[in-house]
């Protein structure tokens, strides 16, 4: 596959993720969408790396995986706490932190 089509794929994935974060109201789905965005970025790295025959692209993907794992761990912990406190996962329902 060429770099171009790879980057288009990554861009489409990223837009799907972003749209998901923006229009979903359930926190768990928002987290899922964030994961999609992270993976889209990872794909872009891998394509860029392989087209230049540079292993650094794959190394960056490993970093992103590690970040994603950490993010999911903290994110799910927050989701549990939010659910315990508000008995809901609707992000629009917990909008009392305003200026």
């Amino acid at each position: 596959m060429s770099l171009e089509s790879g980057l288009i794929l990554s861009g489409i994935l990223f837009m799907i993720g972003l749209t998901g974060v923006m229009i979903r109201r359930n926190i768990i789905f928002m987290l899922l969408s964030v994961e999609i965005m992270l993976n889209a970025a990872g794909i872009a790295f891998i394509f860029a790396g392989s087209s230049r025959a540079d292993p650094n692209g794959q190394i960056m993907f490993l970093f992103i995986l590690a970040v994603a794992a950490a993010e999911v761990a903290i994110g799910l912990a927050l989701v549990i706490l939010i659910y315990q406190k508000f008995k809901t996962l609707d992000i629009d329902g917990i909008s009392f932190m305003k200026g």
């Binding site: 972003l18 974060v21 923006m22 229009i23 109201r25 992000i91 629009d92 909008s95 009392f96 932190m97 305003k98 200026g99």
Partner: peptide, 17 residues
């Protein structure tokens, strides 16, 4: 500016995007 600080996370994301 304080009006933009409305507590809606999705709104913030929209702003970031």
């Amino acid at each position: 500016l304080v009006k933009t600080q409305n507590g809606r996370v999705r709104w913030y994301i929209m702003g970031t995007a």
